[in-house]
Nucleic acid binder design. Structure first.
Lengths: 137, 137
DNA sequence: CCAAAATAGGATTAAATTAGTCTTGTTTTA
DNA sequence: TAAAACAAGACTAATTTAATCCTATTTTGG
């Protein structure tokens, strides 16, 4: 499976935040975790990663929480996945030829390169705003 | 990573067989494993799976080995991956909604469905003959 | 007819990755 | 200054993937 649980949680959390940000901008990990029925501590780790990549801002202290800071129509699935786990790859040898024990072109390289780009393009097309509109939660 | 080591071995083995079948049709696991520098026993397991799906035929006994039986220009990456590990999926929830703890449409479903189909189409386009031509081994 | 060379298939083990937790620390605000 | 929040690194657990082991069974040449 290409897309991890953590990636999934990240996307759903951002969707939740987008869909509930008419009246407030800051959301605690606790609130989001409870609403999505996921582990608070695990989600905190995920938010840390999103914050490190500048998708969200996190504020400590009472009244703290996280807030989306990148334009929500510019945050794509690609950005989120990259922040959480690194870019999802079909085969690691695409990006790191060294891990292959053979030193010849196995014939799959061209195919995987092409298909990887195709996949990345798809991931770049979908924004968090798109997704929020489609989610019926 | 979407494509496992076993899948990779399967494809390379078939490429090897295609590229070396001018003079003989039957190849032992031993020969293929040695040429590709992979574990003989592990490869045997992989060949079993390919045989169960009717891509190759395997013959026991001295002078035994495996032989491709499906038209080599009809064996696609999709067929091989499916035989070895099952169809590679972006997210399992695409094929099994039950594994999701939430009972709402998270917004990613449509996207993942579309992209999954796109990926599968790509996998179906590439035949083992194609790959053998591109491999420089 | 039997020994050697093959594959079959189930059980098991090992390694790697992913998922989740714990602990300690810092920041903020009422 | 205590409570509520996030930060970050170490750790543990669970799952998946990779690889091996063991006991058949089949085939063929001598």
């Amino acid at each position: 499976m290409l897309i991890s649980q953590a990636n999934d949680y990240a996307v759903r959390s951002l969707i939740y935040i987008v869909k509930n940000s008419q009246y407030k901008k800051i959301f605690t990990t606790k609130e989001v975790a409870e609403k999505l029925k996921i582990s608070r501590i695990f989600l905190a780790k995920i938010f840390q990663k999103l914050a490190n990549k500048g998708l969200i801002n996190s504020m400590k202290g009472v009244k703290g929480g996280v807030m989306i800071i990148k334009d929500t129509d510019k945050i794509t699935l690609y950005d989120i996945f990259e922040a959480v786990d690194g870019i999802p790859v079909l085969r690691k040898c695409i990006y790191n030829r060294k891990i292959c024990s053979l030193n010849y072109d196995c014939g799959m390289n061209k195919f995987f390169n092409k298909t990887q780009k195709l996949l990345e393009n798809e991931l770049k097309k979908v924004t968090i705003v798109n997704l929020a509109k489609k989610s019926n939660y």
